[in-house]
Design a protein around this nucleic acid. Sequence first.
DNA 1: AACTCGGGGTC
DNA 2: GACCCAGAGTT
Length: 359
Amino acid sequence: MRVIQQSLLAWYDTNSRDLPWRITSDPYKILVSEIMLQQTRVETVIPYYHRFLESLPNIKSLANIDDQTLLKLWEGLGYYRRALNLKRTAQQIVNQLNCSFPSSAEEWEKLPGIGRYTAGALGSIVNGEQTALVDGNVKRVYARMFNIELPVNEKNGEDAVWDIANNLVPAGRPGDYNQALMELGATVCLSRNPSCSICPVISHCKAFKLGIQDKLPARKKKKSVPQRTAASAIIQREEKFLLLQRPTNGMLGGLWELPTVIIPHLDLKYQEIEAIFDSQLNLKIKIIKLEASARHAYTHFKIHNLAFSSQLIAQDSRERLRHPYKWIDKDQISGFPVHVVQQKLFAQLFDSQQKLSLQ
DNA sequence: AACTCGGGGTC
DNA sequence: GACCCAGAGTT
């Protein structure tokens, strides 16, 4: 075994954090952790991880859960497609693989929601296979260690890191080595102000030798994101209001919200917004008054979401709605998975006493 | 290769 | 504001 690998493993043995998915060898639990950790920080995942496994302790319980319960467990974690794909993976393991988990990265990667990184993680950690993995941490560590100048968010740079990772993953303790690499990136080889003085592999780091660790890894800049405006309708009937479910295919799929449309800009006349509700949702309403407003930033656009108290005009229009819907009491909201912009609106509408006393 | 798909922490 | 995080899937 090479010096880099020995140094990193020795460092990992005494400096690794006590993360909940590291004290188990249950493939199911490790699978759940890896999916949750995609593009999501360790500290964010931990409470979700515990709650998820408490409700769904094994692969069969996940395979059989209904989507609404599943999404409620995922609520606030983001990238909700991950949860639905994870369930599909569980179903394939139960029904097609007879409850036996894949035995290699190649087999893992055939399952939905498991790409190159996650397959490498599961192959090495669960199966003990000598297989590499590259995530944001590994890109940063290796880009600095080997002075990779190519942008790591483009194919060339990514391939360069994968080549190094494939060459360096050891036959012994591949799972620990891969985790050590990520642990180093998460706690020492930080994006900003890396703690080079305590780095166990500082003597192997080209960037440190050149004093350019702050300039690596190189990334191609992303373009700025557009601003969008949305209008939501608070439509009350007796003590209840109308909630719609978003289509499972698109963004925030399967989650619930007030009837909501995208509008071209902020200062449309009420009449014009009403026409958009009609054409987009088949919902004929009369807007009464602005009640709440929330802003939110997604990865590829920003949104300003307004909420208007409204009246339903055509009583039968609900029968032609393009989405699943429910009339619910405000106390029932907590039973539905709701995305964060709408949570912000609900907080303004219901949590403060002066607002919307419901008729 | 570019785009879609969340949310939150950080500076 | 911009950047980034144990990325994957689609076009």
